[in-house]
Nucleic acid binder design. Structure first.
Lengths: 218, 218
DNA sequence: CGGTAACTTGAGCCGCTTCAATCCGCGTGG
DNA sequence: CCACGCGGATTGAAGCGGCTCAAGTTACCG
């Protein structure tokens, strides 16, 4: 996006700050806006009538929300921790996309990328065992090299440190399992010496190669 | 795509016919081409080293293969039954997309659509029970209103007839379960009077509302 | 410190997988 | 035209991984 594009878009922008748990996008609602996340983490999810939930992705700083859909939002979005975002008119983007082909290329690139991630997640949900899922999740989180506030990591003496701003129930809903299974397998990975659990929301990766191996299903 | 675009693209095209089981795209291979499927059905899949497989989608007539990826194919593709397709140069498409912004819009629309379907499938794989998965699959297949040769349906006296060109193992790999569970649940749905199994590759939907209800998780 | 929400741990159970046997459909050749 | 053979599908029995339910523990916040 060039500076001029951004300026025109910025004219319709509203800055919003939300606390943990508050709703950003209502699943099935009419898609009037889209958002850019400037700080914090959000969960994008789909639900079944009896409250079963599947988190489709976590969004961090710089990510766009509410884009890849038609007239209605097909996923909901909620704040995982304190979230700041800019709200834009959806129509504004469409006008802009018509005027600036480069923007379309950018949107295509973002969407393609999300599709590849979604397909990787389908492999995880359909075919991986619980501990492989958790390993995949931790490796993926470690790969977010500080591009999001909540996903920052550093390399202290103890190894890679991964921050997990979400609660266990979010991890469970992302990996298609229960909080108990998440908890048990975290303990398991810790007992095997692959990770260290520093606090509830911070995990140290002690043996990244072994974790990657597990994540790959070997 | 306008006629002129197609003409330029067609200059690089090669028509290919494959038998059931033959490979179209090798997972992880360098992405030199893309394909349009003109008849038959293909499976797109991702694999783990120990041969566990997840089918990410089935492609029918008119679908594009090998598009939404980077330098390498992130999913493999194989023929489910006899498949005819046109092979195009990937570079040709990129040149064309730069010259004709409308094509980009089209690609974005296709990719967005696939993303929405992928997210729906994540909900299925992560949170639905075996019989709900099978019901979802059959309803989805019934929804393909004859846009693909292999997915055609008609409405005879007995109800909607859905054609399933793929084998049970493909259905299992698509729904994240085993062939035995697929088979058992087909028998179950039949016993409940929701479907009738005409042949191995053709199922009659006798109670679509009930099947949709089951698919939605109610 | 107390209170509460979130997390961990334990015990028992259930749905799906695994392993194995049988059945069916279809093509082939006698 | 029918017997045979083979790959794929169904059915059965047993085991197990993850779920459910329940209790205990920890982190966090006023």
């Amino acid at each position: 996006m060039s500076g001029a594009d951004l300026d025109r878009l910025a004219a319709t922008a509203i800055v919003i700050t939300l606390r943990a748990g508050q709703s950003i996008i209502e699943e099935g609602g009419i898609a009037r806006h889209f958002f850019t996340l400037t700080s914090g983490t959000a969960r994008l999810f789909k639900s079944l009538p009896d409250a079963r939930q599947q988190i489709v992705s976590f969004a961090g700083r710089g990510d766009l929300l509410g884009l890849a859909y038609g007239a209605r939002y097909t996923t909901g979005a909620e704040a995982v921790d304190e979230v700041r975002l800019c709200r834009f008119s959806r129509q504004g983007l469409h006008d802009l996309a018509d005027a600036f082909p480069d923007l379309k290329r950018r949107l295509l690139s973002i969407t393609s990328n999300e599709l590849v991630l979604a397909q990787e997640q389908m492999l995880l949900l359909g075919r991986k065992k619980a501990c492989e899922r958790l390993a995949s999740f931790l490796v993926m989180r470690a790969g977010r090299t500080g591009d999001a506030d909540a996903g920052t990591m550093a390399r202290p003496a103890g190894g890679w440190v991964v921050s997990l701003p979400m609660r266990r129930v979010d991890i469970a809903d992302y990996l298609g399992m229960t909080i108990e299974t998440v908890s048990r397998n975290l303990t398991l990975l810790k007992a095997r010496g692959l990770i260290g659990v520093n606090t509830l929301h911070q995990v140290a990766i002690l043996d990244l190669p072994a974790l990657e191996c597990l994540a790959a299903g070997q």
